[in-house]
Every structure is written in C-alpha cells, then in structure tokens.
Design a binder for these strands. Structure first.
Length: 339
DNA sequence: GAAGCGTGGGC
DNA sequence: TGCCCAAGCTT
C-alpha cells in the first residue's frame, strides 16, 4: 500500500530549471497486467485511475503537512473560514489570521453579531478584502436560514455569498466527508500533467475539469476525501507550477508529462494580470489599509487623499470602495463598512 | 468569457 | 528587477 515509495527510475531531471533534457522513457511496455491484482511495482506505472488514487492517498497519509484544518475536531465553520481565506492567498499567510478569526468568532452567529467593518478590519492584509465582506454576509445567512449551522449540501453552500464551485465542494467534502470531486488550481495542474501529459492545465473549464476529477475519484467516501486533499497537497508541494519536484512525486512512474519528456506548454495561457504598481487596486489597497489602521475611528477625506497624488484616480478608487461596500461615509469621515 | 479584485514572496 | 504565482468569485 505504500505505493510507489521505491525508486525504479533514476533519470529525474525535472528539478530546477526547465525540463529540456529528459527524454523520459515512453516504455508503456510494463503497464499493469490486464487482470486482477496489481503488484506495487506495476501499480506505479499503471494508468488505471484506481492505482493513481491509491498512490496519492498513500503518499498523502505519510506526507500531509500539519495544518490547522487537518486537526481533529476542526469545525465546519473553521473549514468555511479557512476556505475563504485560502482563495488566492498562500497557506503560510492564512494560518495566523485563521487562528485569530476562530478565537474571536468561533461560530457563524458570533461573526454575524459583529459589524462587517470588524470583519474587514480583522482580515488585515490577506488581500481581496471583499472576501471578508462576503464571509460576514455568509455568516448572517447561515444564522438566518440554516439555524447557525454551516450547510452540508453543495447547493445550499453555493447559495452563500462568496462561495463558488470550489469552496462549496471543498466544505462538503472536507468538513462533512461527502463524496464530491473537488477541483482547484493544484488539482487541475496535477491532472494536466499526470493524466494528460501537458505542462499546464490551461484556462479553467468547470464542467470538463469536474468530469476529469470525477473519473479519478475513488468510490469510497473516506478514500475520496483523502484523494481530494492529497491531490491538492501534491499540487501545492510537489507538482508545483514552477520547479516541480518530480523526483519526490508518487506518480512519477506513470506521469504522462514525464513519459512524454516534459514538453513545454503550447495551449492557451490564462490571461495575465495587469501590473499592480500604479493600478486602481494599489490605490484601493492604500485607502483600505488606512481605514483598517484607524478602525473603528473615521478618517478624513484630506488624510486619505494625501495617500495618492493622482486625484482623479484616487476619487475613482474611493468611489469604488464605497460602491463595493468596503467603506462607508459617516458624519466624521470615512470608515470601514458600518452595518 | 474576459476583466477586475490585494498582497507578498520566490526566482 | 520584473514577472509569475497563490485552496477563486463575481460581474
């Protein structure tokens, strides 16, 4: 069951820079036999979904990082909060904020009883502060419509603000153990490489991505949960976007990308993000940082406008924050959102 | 479907 | 240094 722990390949090259050299070995000669049980060595090179899942699950059992949401007794609410925070924010930056949040707001009802401004303030520098607003609104909905209990069903979760396809499935699968394919950026990359032989997954396609993960998902609920988590972990620490550590990968013997000699990506790249320096996003961030620093006190327009030289762009950014509900105008000046 | 949305770290 | 990337979601 330890899967592919043993080394049968010595030509791992995918380490530091580029994958140019490695011709790989395309010997599909030793694929798993046609029938019955598969030896550990055969399983390592098999393209059978069950063997891929088994290898990932075994690897995850031994290599999972010790993270808060993997502790016994972690609540569904904790899972929901962590998933919001992890949307586009690295694990290392989430961990300390998550601890603060769950100590301050151990239940949806606790957060719902606070103001959205408190939520945005406690979000600190996690980025994309509208997530704090959505999480607060989700807590209110959970109290009003779900008796303060984080919903278990994907459809109910999807109805919460800020919860999309990934988060809904992650909460149902990880907090409640239900069997759903979960697809995030890590899993899309692992599938692209190990199964499809491509260096990158290309732009997301909800239906197709879900179907691909579903085709690999073990039938057993416990296995399915471990497989979802293990695939994400594999993509996060081994099958990384840059400089993947192929020599440590439990799928190296069967990886289609490796077998093909690590071809470069030729498909459509995802759209590149515009430069942050000088952007509206930067100005919004500066304004919000000032409001956070003073919260719950108000900050005058004069003080805020001194943060950015371009008056037109400043006004646009501030108006945007007000429109988004991330700032409020009071008699004393601007604040984080009140009620 | 593309664009907009924060912030910080790695190479 | 500048660019890419990070457990996405909404419009």
């Amino acid at each position: 069951m330890i899967g592919s722990g043993d080394e049968d390949e010595t030509s791992d090259r995918a380490g530091s820079s580029g994958h140019a050299g490695s011709t790989g070995r395309a010997d599909s000669s030793s694929r798993a036999g046609s029938s019955g049980r598969v030896s550990s060595a055969d399983r390592a090179e098999s393209s059978d979904p069950a063997d891929l899942a088994g290898a990932v699950i075994s690897w995850f059992a031994e290599n999972a990082r010790d993270l808060p949401w993997r502790r016994p007794g972690f609540t569904p609410w904790g899972t929901l909060v962590s998933e919001f925070m992890l949307q586009q924010t690295p694990v290392i930056r989430v961990v300390p904020r998550l601890a603060e949040w769950l100590e301050r707001w151990p239940t949806p009802a606790a957060l719902a009883a606070s103001s959205p401004g408190d939520a945005v303030g406690a979000w600190q520098s996690l980025g994309y502060p509208r997530r704090a607003l959505w999480l607060h609104a989700a807590a209110v909905t959970i109290v009003e419509r779900h008796r303060g209990i984080v919903p278990r069903e994907v459809d109910a979760l999807l109805a919460l603000p800020g919860v999309g396809d990934y988060t809904a499935r992650a909460v149902s699968a990880f907090a409640y153990g239900d069997r759903h394919p979960v697809v995030d950026t890590n899993i899309r990359r692992v599938i692209a490489r190990a199964v499809q032989g491509d260096a990158e997954p290309g732009p997301p396609n909800g239906k197709r991505d879900l179907a691909e993960m579903a085709a690999l998902l073990p039938t057993d609920r416990t296995d399915a949960r471990a497989f979802n988590a293990g695939m994400m972990e594999l993509g996060a620490v081994v099958c990384t976007a840059r400089a993947p550590k192929c020599e440590l990968c439990p799928l190296r013997a069967s990886c289609a990308w490796r077998a093909a000699g690590y071809p470069e990506f030729t498909g459509k790249r995802k759209t590149i993000q515009k430069k942050f320096e000088g952007s509206d996003r930067q100005v919004r961030g500066l304004i919000l940082a000032a409001l956070r620093a003073r919260h719950p006190e108000a900050v005058s327009h004069a003080v805020l406008s001194a943060l950015w030289p371009d008056r037109l762009q400043f006004d646009r950014a501030l108006a945007g924050l007000l429109a988004d509900g991330l700032a409020s105008l009071t008699a004393d000046g601007f604040t984080l959102p009140t009620s």
